[in-house]
């Protein structure tokens, strides 16, 4: 059982990193991303292919994957340069996400299509014995998660963090104050993209096998759910949000034993219905989430 908990905790870690990326782009920067699933796939595939075809080691492959997703996100932000309207931006991200998934599915020569990529190398996979590897991977994931939170906290408290929040609240005002809106948006989205790339790389290390079916659109709902439950803009909260979502998902598998009339198809449907309703309920009743965004505190004495 302990081993299983370790595995689930690892999944929670990289889901949390993914949710943090969304939180950064949307929660802090106000740039909604409906292409999460496709970009996540891009990160995972980039990392795996850099190792399998490019011969890179795990460290450089991860960095490469982060750079590639960041670049893709930067381009998305650039294409929408003339319309800073969120509506259009959201639709573009949705379309790009779909397209990336199609590429992963159809470009056999590169991604092996529906067959997927197997035998993905893991960091220090040769050095550490298989029976201890899961502990190492959990440790690595926790460390990377902590590093991501630290990095995002630093950014959120920096001058750039203030620009981001200004953009989120009203980009016209930000522009009037002399902030370069387009460049800031590109940076916000690209940094978020790099974090998606990191989460994707970990996904590959964990499963060691990736195929296009792992990146269905429900990934988007999970990430949004984690961000909203955790509290938009609150990094630590998002980790709890991701943990709650994963526990809900895994926990609902035990529902089968409680309600024997339902077959698994129906359970899968119910699980997604619960996620969807939960998303709406949170938006309606607790839009601020369960944790608060960081605010600069000044002690008056």
């Amino acid at each position: 059982m302990i081993s299983f908990l370790i595995l689930i905790s690892t999944v929670v870690c990289f889901s949390a990193i993914l949710a943090l990326a969304l939180n950064f782009q949307w929660g802090l920067g106000g740039m909604v991303n409906f292409g999460m699933a496709g970009l996540y796939a891009l990160g995972t595939y980039s990392c795996a292919l850099l190792m399998l075809k490019g011969g890179a080691n795990t460290f450089f492959a991860t960095l490469g994957a982060m750079a590639i997703v960041a670049a893709a996100c930067g381009v998305i932000a650039l294409v929408t340069l003339r319309v800073t309207e969120e509506d259009y931006f959201a639709i573009v991200t949705l379309g790009v996400g779909e397209m990336l998934r199609l590429v992963a599915l159809n470009e056999d020569w590169l991604t092996k299509g529906a067959l997927g990529l197997t035998g993905i190398p893991r960091p220090l996979g040769d050095v550490i014995a298989p029976e201890y590897y899961q502990y190492f991977l959990l440790g690595l994931s926790v460390a990377l998660l902590a590093g991501t939170v630290w990095f995002l906290n630093v950014i959120a408290r920096s001058p750039f963090g203030r620009i981001m929040r200004a953009l989120r609240e009203d980009d016209v005002v930000a522009a009037t104050l002399g902030k370069h809106v387009l460049w800031a948006r590109v940076r916000i989205f690209a940094i978020g993209g790099a974090i998606i790339g990191l989460a994707g790389s970990l996904h590959g290390f964990y499963y060691q096998y990736i195929d296009p079916t792992q990146f269905s659109n429900i990934v988007i709902a999970y990430a949004f759910m984690a961000v909203i439950a955790g509290g938009r803009g609150a990094h630590q909260g998002v980790i709890w949000g991701a943990a709650v979502v994963m526990v809900l998902l895994e926990g609902s598998r035990f529902m089968k034993d409680l309600i024997p009339v339902l077959d698994s198809d129906q359970l899968a449907a119910i699980r997604i219905i619960i996620i969807g309703i939960g998303l709406i309920l949170l938006l309606v009743f607790r839009p601020q989430g369960f944790m608060r965004e960081y605010r600069l505190q000044v002690n008056f004495k």
């Binding site: 081993s3 299983f4 595995l7 197997t118 899961q134 096998y209 195929d211």
Partner: peptide
């Protein structure tokens, strides 16, 4: 993973589809 780590299985059987087989093979 659950079969191997929780139930200590030494045999994994079933695995009807290709995705299931491919993802479990390295494990």
């Amino acid at each position: 993973q659950k079969f191997i780590n929780v139930h200590k299985c030494q045999a994994l059987v079933g695995y009807w589809g290709t995705p299931e087989g491919m993802s479990s093979r390295p494990i």
